[in-house]
Design a protein around this nucleic acid. Structure first.
Lengths: 216, 216
DNA sequence: ACCGAAGTGGAGGGAAGTCGTCCACTAGCT
DNA sequence: AGCTAGTGGACGACTTCCCTCCACTTCGGT
């Protein structure tokens, strides 16, 4: 479904489509999935008309962005897992990269809006689950190696990063970016095994994150 | 300015005012300072009319909430600092409590909206600065004790917690709450001194957080 | 008990912002 | 060179939120 319509697209249209996707990814990442469509269009250097031609409505765009990102992350995760020699180093490298990769929205199922949209799309869910499987393996692996604290689940990590990576504002953009990177660093240290304190509650698994069957 | 109007208020009015403040605090904490006024009114069990009678506009409400919270936190911080025997234990206890105290918005100067509002109010700033002074002392103290990693500033901590404490959604509310608590735990561990990895950039100080002289 | 002042709720006018359509125009492809 | 896919952005409908206003209720002193 991703390869089909892309091939039949005229060259310039194709380019625009990619730009829209890229712009949307960035903007969604910092401002959530509810930003005005026009802003996305502007950032992509196209008109709203074009945007709507390509993605019939906001939901379609969100879905597309999610797909794209999940795919990228999944690949990245697999590559890293293959390259690194230990699960722990793979995990921490993946997390560090996630700043650039804007893992945020992707895991950020944390946004209610995005959540309901994605929930309905089995394909997206499948991808997401695949990612979680990889992460889960890394987690278990790193724990087996004795590098990752044992009182933790993949869900803990997901939540940690999903919430952390959004919207760190500061005086200057560079500071904000640095801040994000530092936060990740601190968190990774917090994750590593050590004689340290015990966490309250029980490890949060990926199941805990599943889209709630919402009542509202 | 806080004691004056409260005393002349009729008993029921007083009660309503408090409920509004409490509701606003909670709601701001999870959804940011831009939520519809009506929602706050509803949560407080009053009509919008009442809300507006007590706080002429949104800004006034935000200010009031900030004042109230800053005051509470400041007191709390001082008490803790006095009770605990080491700066590190004081710091980590304060941070742990911040979940309940919803330190979020207060430090969450992170929200652009709140930021500009509070920036204009010298009284609020004074309070905020006082808090930062206390935290700064704890940070330095804990570092002197060798318990807190040295490559960190009060700003790092502020950012860490401000971003972390907002809106952790999950299947069930209890899980969300637990998740928040666990995140804090992990972060505290990440903050503690250890042979661990070095952080990128330089320590972020409280100055870095100061309201930007904004161009937008 | 009673009454005046203080307080209350929520309907509704109006401002602001978004959405998605539509169509005159441009530029790829053959 | 022409046909057609593609483009941009003005625009009307609609939603959302703000805050005012006023008929009604409640408090608290006498």
């Amino acid at each position: 479904m991703t390869a089909d319509p892309e091939t039949t697209l005229r060259a310039d249209a194709r380019r625009n489509r990619d730009q829209i996707l890229a712009a949307a990814k960035t903007i969604f990442a910092v401002s959530g999935p509810e930003v005005p469509m026009e802003e996305i269009a502007r950032a992509a250097g196209v008109g709203v008309g074009t945007l709507y031609r390509r993605f019939p409505d906001r939901d379609a765009l969100v879905r597309a962005v999610a797909m794209d990102n999940f795919e990228r992350v999944l690949i990245e995760a697999k590559v890293i897992a293959a390259e690194e020699t230990s699960a722990w180093s793979a995990l921490s490298r993946l997390l560090r990269q996630s700043v650039e990769l804007q893992l945020s929205i992707q895991l950020a199922m944390v946004s209610h809006r995005a959540l309901v949209i994605l929930k309905s799309d089995p394909e997206v869910r499948r991808l997401r689950d695949e990612i979680l499987v990889v992460v889960d393996e890394l987690v278990r692996g790193a724990q087996a190696e004795g590098r990752l604290r044992r009182d933790i689940g993949a869900g803990d990590i997901a939540i940690l990063f999903a919430t952390l990576l959004r919207q760190v504002r500061a005086k200057v953009p560079e500071v904000a970016e640095m801040a994000a990177r530092r936060c990740v660093g601190i968190m990774i240290d917090g994750l590593s095994a050590r004689p340290g304190t015990e966490l309250p509650g029980r490890p949060i698994t990926s199941d805990d994150l599943d889209p709630a069957d919402d009542h509202s």
